[in-house]
Design a protein around this nucleic acid. Structure first.
Lengths: 95, 95
DNA sequence: ATCATTCATCGTTAATTACCGATATAAGCT
DNA sequence: AGCTTATATCGGTAATTAACGATGAATGAT
């Protein structure tokens, strides 16, 4: 994975609200839309939407339009790749 | 590990220059000072110093004053903890 | 066709970040 | 004591980010 990419994903994870959003999306059993996420957070809908955008652009979540709602899911494959890349980085650093 | 902490470390890793600095510090066989790092990068010394500060504050590197120089080392234990925390996060997300 | 709902985007503001050159401090050397 | 070296910090600028309320576009319901 490219450094630029790696840094971008890390940056996306580098805000507590976004960590929270990821967990909320992951834990919601059925589809999870922006309103659902917003309801769990003390933030305006537009703010949540922007955080979602950051996660989308990092490729960590995916949008699925579903009627009038937009639902989000964690992209497991991307997370896995990131974990691997991170493991490689760490190994390189502390070996 | 606290979310705030985790996010802070992630943020520190969320810039390609800082990833680079970490690698430079890790790979330098003997002590690695600010000037050494600066020499490897197309940035001003003051800029490198600031990036180093971010990594220091995240606890990912440590300063060891050595004569007139300040040398840096990667804090292996912290990196390991971060890797673990990250693994936990990922597991929680994609399980 | 109208209305309601959902949510991305816009416009704004305040705060933070990234970068630089310049300066000050601290340690070692002569 | 004075000089050199290394580097943290200061002051400044431009860019980015985080937050908000308001608006507009799209979809589904009446």
């Amino acid at each position: 994975m490219q450094d630029e990419d790696l840094a971008n994903m890390m940056r996306a994870l580098g805000h507590p609200v976004r960590l929270n959003i990821l967990r909320i999306v992951a834990q919601s059993q059925q589809s999870c839309c922006c309103a659902d996420v917003t309801q769990c957070l003390p933030l305006a809908q537009s703010t949540v939407s922007q955080h979602i955008k950051v996660l989308l652009e990092a490729g960590l979540i995916e949008r699925r339009s579903q009627g009038t709602k937009n639902c989000y899911v964690v992209v497991a494959q991307k997370m896995q790749k990131l974990e691997n890349a991170f493991g490689n980085l760490t190994q390189g650093l502390i070996s």
